[in-house]
Design a binder for these strands. Structure first.
Lengths: 214, 214
DNA sequence: ACGTACTTGTGTCATACCGTCAGCTTATCT
DNA sequence: AGATAAGCTGACGGTATGACACAAGTACGT
C-alpha cells in the first residue's frame, strides 16, 4: 500500500488516517442516501464530526474522494476473477459457469451500486480516471470471457470470424447495465428471476455459440 | 401541446417561450461541454443572455429543465419504433433487422449522449420521473423485440420457457449501455465496427435462438 | 516530567451559487 | 390611451467552496 498523504504533501499518521477513513465512510453513506449532485463537502464533514477544512486537507475535492472509493471497489472486484476464469463452458458445466457469473456480477454491482453509478456517469462524461476504474472493474471478467471464446475458436467450436473481445465486452456491459437498472426492468414487469434466466441464456450462447444445456 | 406555464402560474407568451427555449438550448450545450455536477443555473442564464432569476421563472430547478430535455429525447425516440416493429426475423432478413436495429439505437444514443447519461444516473438513483423517461426511450424497441420473440414462441421456433420480456430488456439494455461507454471498449482495444458486429450477432440470436444468416 | 518538533484540526475569509422578491419594462387588448 | 398581464432584473439573505494562518494535540528524546 502506498503511503497516504495529505493534500499539502505531508504523510498522514495514525489519527489522520482514521479521520480520512471516516470521511470516506461518511461520503459512501451519503452517496447511498441521496443524489450525487446533492452531496456536499460540508455534509460529509459534518457527518464525520469534523470541519470542511479537514476534508480539504485530505482530498482536493469530492470527486477525488469518490475516486478513492471507486479504487476500493476496483480492488474488491478482483474477486470477480474467480467467477469467470478457469471455467468450463461445455455442456452442463457451461450453464453452471454462466449462472455463477451472472449472479456474481449482478450481486457485486448491486452491492456497490451507489459508487458504481457515479463511476458510470463520470466515465460516460469522458473522465479518464473513472473510465480506467470502470474498465478495471469489468476487466477480469472481460478477459476471462474473451479468452474462453478464443479457446473455443481455436478448437473450432466457434466460428473464427466472431470478434471475441467485442462479444465479451458486450456481454459484460449487458450484465453491469442490467444490474444498474432494476427499476427499468420493473417497469417492464420483468422479475429479477426471469432477468437472470435471460442473462444466463444470452451469456451462455454468446460464449459458446450453442444453446445452454438445462 | 399543453400550454407552457411559468413557475408562478402565468401563461407564457411568444417572447417567454423563446426565452424558455433558449435556456433549454444553452443547458443542453453546457451538459455536452462539461460535467453534470458542474452545470449551474448562473452559467445557463449567462449563456442565454439573461439573468438567473429568469431561469427560475420557467423552471423550479436545473433538474426540472433537464427533465424537459429528456422529454424531448423521449419524443424523438418514437422514431426508433420503426427500427424494431413489423420486422421479419427469419433468415437473412433477420440479420438485416438486427443490423438496422443495432445501428439505429447506437446512433440515437450517441447523438443524445449528454442528456441520456444524466437520465441514466438519475434513473439509477431511483428518481421515478427519470426512470419513466428512460423506460420510454427504450420502450418501443423493447416492445417490438418482446413481441417478436413471443411470435416465434407461438410458432414453436423458440422454446416457450424463454422469458421474452426479460430477454428483450436485456438486449435493449446491452445496446444502450454499449453506446454509452465507447471509451470502455476503446480500453479493450475493441473497434466500433467489431462491437457492432458482436451486438448484431447477440441480438439476432437472442431473438431467434438461431445463428444469424450472414 | 518537560520541552521541542511535528501532525492534525479549526475559525475565518473572499468568492461564487442558490432561490426569492419587489418593482420596473414591455407587449397586448379594448 | 389606458388597463392588464407578461417578461425581466437588481438586490438580498442564505449557503457551499476552497484557501490560509494559527491553535490544539501528539510523539519523542532527555
Amino acid at each position: 500500500m502506498t503511503q497516504v498523504r495529505t493534500v499539502d504533501g505531508r504523510i498522514a499518521g495514525r489519527r489522520g488516517q482514521e479521520t480520512r477513513a471516516r470521511l470516506l465512510e461518511c461520503l459512501a453513506e451519503l452517496l447511498a442516501a441521496r443524489s450525487y449532485r446533492d452531496v456536499t463537502v460540508i455534509d460529509v464533514a459534518r457527518d464525520a464530526g469534523t470541519s470542511p477544512a479537514t476534508f480539504y486537507q485530505y482530498f482536493p475535492d469530492i470527486e477525488a474522494a469518490i475516486l478513492e472509493l471507486a479504487a476500493d471497489v476496483v480492488r474488491e472486484a478482483a474477486e470477480l476473477k474467480e467467477l469467470a476464469s478457469e471455467r468450463s463452458w461445455a455442456g452442463r458445466a457451461g450453464t453452471v459457469s454462466a449462472t455463477e457469473l451472472v449472479n456474481g456480477l449482478m450481486d457485486f454491482w448491486q452491492e456497490h451500486d451507489s459508487i458504481l453509478r457515479v463511476v458510470d456517469l463520470a466515465a460516460a462524461e469522458g473522465d479518464k480516471r473513472f473510465t480506467k476504474h470502470r474498465m478495471r472493474v469489468l476487466d477480469a471478467v472481460h478477459k476471462a470471457l474473451s479468452s474462453a471464446i478464443g479457446e473455443l475458436q481455436k478448437s473450432g467450436k466457434v466460428e473464427s470470424d466472431v470478434p471475441a473481445a467485442a462479444t465479451a465486452g458486450a456481454l459484460v456491459t449487458m450484465l453491469a447495465a442490467s444490474a444498474a437498472h432494476p427499476k427499468t426492468f420493473e417497469s417492464w414487469a420483468v422479475k429479477d428471476k426471469d432477468l437472470r434466466a435471460a442473462l444466463i441464456r444470452l451469456v451462455s450462447w454468446g460464449v459458446t455459440g450453442k444453446k445452454p444445456t438445462p
